[in-house]
């Protein structure tokens, strides 16, 4: 199924949103985790990202950008809000009724254990992340999308809604700042 067909099927029946969830939850979750380095915050931000997407999917027009880029854009905005406010208000867990909250919490516990083990396998990355978090958000987002997610400049520019020239200058300045920070550790 192409993205356009998927979008049409969701607009006809919102239950089909779970198909979009299956396709993109893992990559978006990974992107948020690699930006925050914290499992619990990642669950909050990722669930808010998909909740926002679910509430606005009917307004989404495919002609502008792809669904994937759109989801990355929402996720980036949510992560930036998290870094700016620190105290995160989780929309999903206030609005959603879980049929079996204990079962959900127990699955979260298992995922947390697994993800924390995974995070600690990458010491070098964790050190770079500490330095990256001390930079301004505009540098964090471009460096993370380019070097952690391996995205091309064109796609990053689409996600951040900036032109490629601005992106290149942000990347070059951000990288220089990050290198200086890393050399201090």
């Amino acid at each position: 199924m192409t993205e356009i067909e998927l979008l049409d099927s969701i607009k006809k029946n919102q239950d089909n949103f779970s198909e979009l969830f299956k396709l993109y939850y893992k990559p978006i979750f990974g992107y948020i985790l690699r930006r925050t380095g914290n499992f619990d915050d990642t669950v909050d931000i990722a669930s808010d990202t998909f909740f926002n997407a679910f509430r606005n999917i009917n307004k989404f027009s495919y002609k502008g950008i792809s669904i994937k880029v759109w989801l990355y854009r929402i996720a980036t905005n949510e992560v930036n809000m998290y870094f700016r406010n620190k105290q995160k208000y989780n929309l999903v867990f206030k609005s959603v009724d879980f049929e079996n909250k204990d079962a959900f919490n127990s699955l979260l516990y298992e995922d947390r254990k697994e993800m924390e083990t995974e995070l600690h396998k990458h010491d070098q990355y964790l050190l770079v992340l500490i330095s990256l978090k001390s930079l301004s958000i505009k540098y964090q987002e471009v460096i993370s999308l380019r070097y952690f997610e391996g995205k091309e400049n064109k796609e990053i520019a689409e996600i951040l809604n900036i032109n490629e020239g601005t992106l290149k200058s942000l990347l070059s300045r951000g990288l220089e700042k990050l290198r200086k920070k890393c050399s201090q550790i």
């Binding site: 939850y25 998909f50 909740f51 049929e99 995922d111 993800m115 990458h122 990355y125």
Partner: peptide, 26 residues
């Protein structure tokens, strides 16, 4: 930066329950 290993996300067990809860949210 390109070559260093980064954390990867395996199958997430909470994924299906969250998807189900979100699609039923008001």
């Amino acid at each position: 930066l390109i070559q260093m290993t980064k954390p990867d996300v395996p199958h997430l067990k909470h994924e299906d329950m969250l998807a189900n809860a979100i699609t039923k949210a008001k």
